[in-house]
Amino acid sequence: MSIVVKIEEKLYQNRYIVDESRPHIQIRNDAVCKSCESQACTVCCPAACYSKNETGSVTLATDGCLECGTCRVVCQDKENIQWDYPRGGYGISYKFG
């Protein structure tokens, strides 16, 4: 089965209160991502917030983040993700959950 999935279309249905220019997750050290063989965050993140970039490293865009914590768990051996909850009231706001 080869079905094309557009994650943007899924995320578009969600309500977000974006905390402009205050990302709640940050990559600590770009070089660590570059040397990371699996870059598992780029596959595991359910909102596709992480993507491989042209320098061989990983780009993070937290706007679509669902705050699940998966990236925090997959990157714990490298400890290269600084993970916090967004400020109170910001981030994903599930209507149904």
């Binding site: 899924k10 995320l11 249905q13 969600n14 359910p46 909102a47 669902l66 998966t70 209507k95």
Partner: peptide, 9 residues
């Protein structure tokens, strides 16, 4: 019709 997409651990 899909109205919300969610993820959770």
């Amino acid at each position: 019709e899909m109205k919300e997409y969610a993820a959770h651990m």
